[in-house]
Nucleic acid binder design. Sequence first.
RNA 1: GUCCCGGUAGCUCAGAGGAUUAGAGCAUCUGACUUCUAAUCAGAGGGUCGCAGGUUCGAAUCCUGCCCGGGACGCCA
Length: 600
Amino acid sequence: MSLEILKSLGVALAGDSGLPADEIPSILPEPPPPNIDADFTVNCFRLAQAFKRRPDQLAESAERTLASMPEVEKVGRVKAFVNVRMKPAELHRQCAKFAEGTLSQPFLPESRRMRILVEFSSPNTNKPLHLGHLRNNAIGSSVSSLLSKAGHKVTRTNLVNDRGIHICKSMLAYRLHGDGITPESAGIKGDHLVGDFYVKFDKELKAQIEELRASDPKLKNVENDELFARTSIGAAAQDMLRKWESGDKATVELWKKMNSWVLDGFSQTYARMGISFDKIYFESDTYLRGKETVEEGLRKGVFGRREDGAVFTDLEKSSLGKKILLRPDGTSVYITQDIGTTLLKQSEFSPDQQIWVVGDEQIHHFKTLFAIMKQLGHPWADRLVHLSYGMVNLPSGRMKSREGTVVDADDLFDELFSLAKNATLERFEGKEPPPDIDSRAETIAMGALKFMLLKFNPKTTVTFDPQASVKFEGDTGPYVQYACARISSILRKCEEKGVAYAPELANFAALSSREERELSVRAAIYQSALSLALEKLDTSVISSYLLDLAKSFSRFYREHSVLNADDPGLRNARMGLSILVRDILKDGLAILGINVPEAM
RNA sequence: GUCCCGGUAGCUCAGAGGAUUAGAGCAUCUGACUUCUAAUCAGAGGGUCGCAGGUUCGAAUCCUGCCCGGGACGCCA
């Protein structure tokens, strides 16, 4: 797919280059720099490789070919950039056709569509979700949507980490100090209630460690981790974990109760974010998996056994060193579980590809996991992907739950909601505020938050400044939403005046201004943005694109009136263009998980 | 010690396998609401692209070395 004119160009250039018809590279338009008088640029530096020609030669051929086309008004060339200006009617017709194609059908050819399983979020059930989880959720969810839009069959999964010593910490603190309190009796969300006990445990642990140190000067240089089991509270937590693993009734009951509180809280947070999963795995169900696979690998000689009985694998060849898979006592480690769940997901859904959205501190872990899958001879092992992302820091540094510096997800939602509501109220000063103000404010707040999380490349460690990040002006989600709301408003006004859109009346030849041309071309390159985002698995490409398109629209809006256009031909052409732009903005925002209010 | 990621305007970030005069938002300053919504638009100032070499007609981009920041290299998860 591309502009018709560029498809023809591709055919001509391929003919010159002796490429077979089914290997014609698709040529996507690029916006020209502002000082060049053209609608779009054909970048032959980028195309040179695909056409197996030298950039300058390719550009010369392209220039000649384009100059001979009737739709073309003017062609210019700077080095290997061919700048094209089309006759307005053709420009708008071809751009609209191309952009509509992108909206209405998956942009990957059927032969390249796969079944893909994405795992993201994966929270621990000992504390509520925070800003870091929100970045994970936003990335995982938007990448899943992008993959679907491309034409892949996507399964969204979440592996909830609901067992282990950290869970027992909250449980123990609850048993010691809970006094029968419940989310209902306390009037707080279950995940927050449990999180509070986690913090309590940690405080008490710290105090006990201090006591220990004070009582014995030899402990001065011993790590806190090593002192854990020597505190009464630490030992009790370990004991609780053992009891849980052996199925002790009272322990399991408490665990079930507290976990259900946390999971209830999570569902509310997910629901508010508009995130859902096709399958939720619980580590309490899966944590014993992987052992059989490791033992089988041992029998087949893929893995080795150490003198003390531990099972390990040698990944020296991949320069990953040796990795323990089973401890000397036969118990499994973190990666053993991941081996198990990877195979479980593989057998349940037979995906062609699995993607994990997990923080970049686990890059090494996933390299190891993938190398082991390859050792085990799985043909899909080459396609496993760790989509890693950087931390979200505060201006003051890292967020630390133990120090109370985490930005809580629910609190942030509430804060953004009230800011959005106040901003909306300000705009209705002296007037009756709209009845749907709460839903508007919620849409705007979530739009601002998700856009903020998704406008950066996932790999970068980002700084979240609570003061600055919470704005609704500039490069933000609300800016893009606002462009949509304005278009809706234009269309409402048109309808009120009885001049609803009539495509057959549109005179696209009349759209000759710089703003109108630019807007059409931006709309047409939507697919380029999606393709690039897919290739990089980076939805920030889409955020940037949507900002550009919204900016182009805002400029157009300032310069040209739709409703008061000189004649029906021009008005309908502008309406058609505006509708297309709104549809693209909505479509792109939907990939990012952002809704659009009808009015703002 | 080894490996990975980053260092671009005061701040937060874009700059796809080299390529048209390095971009955007915020912040600062100037201008635009009797008009389809000013959550907007137009404009100004602000950069030795961490440093030093190299490859190239051409480097923020590729190569080497160094400096700075973050992370990983667990029988933690």
